[in-house]
Amino acid sequence: MNTTATTLSPPMLAAHDIRKSYGKGTARFDALAGVSLSVYAGESIAIVGKSGSGKSTLMHLLALLDQPDDGTLMVGDTNADELSVRQLNRLRNQDFGFVFQQFFLTPNATVFDNVVLPLKIAGVGARERKTRGMAVLEQLEMADKAKNKAVNLSGGQKQRVVIARALVNNPKVIFADEPTGNLDTITGALVENILFALNRDHGITLVIVTHDPELATRCDSQLFIRDGRAVRSLDTLGEAA
């Protein structure tokens, strides 16, 4: 599946036959029924599926936000089970960046305050927060909006702020859950360009969850998922399984 040269080194994140279900008894719902996936440093990978296919659950597991019921999840050479809560928190804070479809910005806080939240959580001092926060806003051409309240921004601006927030800690991986889902086509394309430029120019690994086949084809590799299982191709996705 991985076509790039990065196959030489061990994957950055690897899931092997992971399962996850919610609920109990008759209400039990298998979100993931045995999925394997490797994410190599520097690549961009799309997790493609319809809503309810389990693609978001897979991303949450890869991002260590949740634990699989079964199967193994490796972070580099380490089994995720062996990581302490503190190590997990640090990993998510330092190495991961998150971009959500619904933005999750604090509406009444300023753009700047939203962007530097990960730095605040990391315990970075106010002065350094200022420099790094403004630098990343500069990079996304949002510096002039730094003092605006997040609630007053347009959708595209919001998503750029979200990307800035994901970037501020210089992460190795950005997890993007339907990053263009709430945006019109033109704005969506702009946001896509920003994400792929980060991947190309800064070597940031992208894990994009999407139902949009066009966005998926822009990625180096794709994982198609349906009813909690990996399927072969885009075509299969359309078939009734």
Binding site: A63, L65, V85, R86, L88, N89, R90, L91, R92, N93, Q94, F98, F104, T106, L117, P118, I121, A122
Partner: peptide, 13 residues
Amino acid sequence: REIGLMKAMGMGG
């Protein structure tokens, strides 16, 4: 949501 976001970003309980 905000709490969830902060936890996702590595803020400890």
